[in-house]
Design a protein around this nucleic acid. Structure first.
Lengths: 149, 149
DNA sequence: TTTAACTGTTCAACTATTTAACTATTAACG
DNA sequence: CGTTAATAGTTAAATAGTTGAACAGTTAAA
């Protein structure tokens, strides 16, 4: 059979997605290793992007419970990477921002990851990798819809 | 700019890979929820595929330390999903196999995941998703090379 | 036969996560 | 207004997964 049927594709997708996930994580850990876990790096990344956000916002973006965010933020706060500031108008709300140290650490790690990913991407034909990323982004949207229900 | 440069592609890849990883995990957890974690499911999947394997083999495949495997296997062994059998010729070695219960649980969960992934894949043009998976598999190989060094 | 290598386990420490109970604050409405 | 709802975030206990270091038992090599 030259044309794979749906069942084959499903099998291959399941296998390859798990494999790539694991290998990418371990590659980042081994080659970056910046005292930041994957989740911590992406938390810094998000806060850096939006400038300032709340725990609830992070919980929704990362699709975990708020208490998980509290725990993670506390660990990074203890390392001096993140600042907590109470809103003076609504004193329930706590704004999260990067400290200088957090920002510097993030930028350094991000640069390394960038180089790493670039070296991977450069091993592909540009049209191929571009199409790949576009389909990946479509998949991301489809997953958002599926999860939202 | 119609043609994205490399930096854009790298940014987009980093963002989308993390997002899809999180969303897929949470979708599986919410819609499958079979008393198995993701890692446990993939462990059962691997053992089911090869029939029988050792801790060291799993540690290498999943790229974690052997003590992590011991802990995970112990948890599944306590649930009656996995059997440990000492090699009579080389008494250092312990073979891991699925129990009846482990096999049944795996097959049930696998079927659900299969249906879920199929429903996702069916929302794409078949040629597009096929190309996507092929590039994904190439990426997997590239990551293997990068990790092996 | 002593030494080296290998397989797997245990233990302490850590990150990440959920659930449930809780505090403090703000909003709603009767 | 005052009681009740909802909201934002935290705490605590439990579980999963992970590393690193030390260790036991077994086999291979010198």
């Amino acid at each position: 059979m030259n044309v794979p049927n749906i069942k084959d594709l499903v099998d291959r997708y399941i296998a390859v997605s798990f494999s790539v996930e694991k290998k990418a994580a371990s590659l980042v850990k081994n080659q970056i290793g910046s005292d930041l876990t994957n989740d911590q790096h992406f938390t810094l990344r998000y806060i850096n992007q939006v400038g300032s956000c709340t725990s609830s916002e992070l919980a929704e973006v990362f699709d975990v419970k708020k208490s998980a965010i509290t725990a993670m933020i506390t660990r990074m706060w203890e390392k001096g990477l993140i600042q907590r500031t109470r809103d003076e108008n609504d004193r329930r709300v706590v704004y999260l921002t990067l400290t200088e140290k957090g920002s510097e650490l993030y930028v350094k790690a991000e640069e390394k990851i960038h180089n790493l990913v670039e070296s991977l991407i450069n091993r592909f034909d540009q049209a191929e990798i571009q199409q790949f990323i576009e389909t990946f982004e479509k998949l991301d949207k489809v997953l958002s819809q599926s999860n939202g229900q």
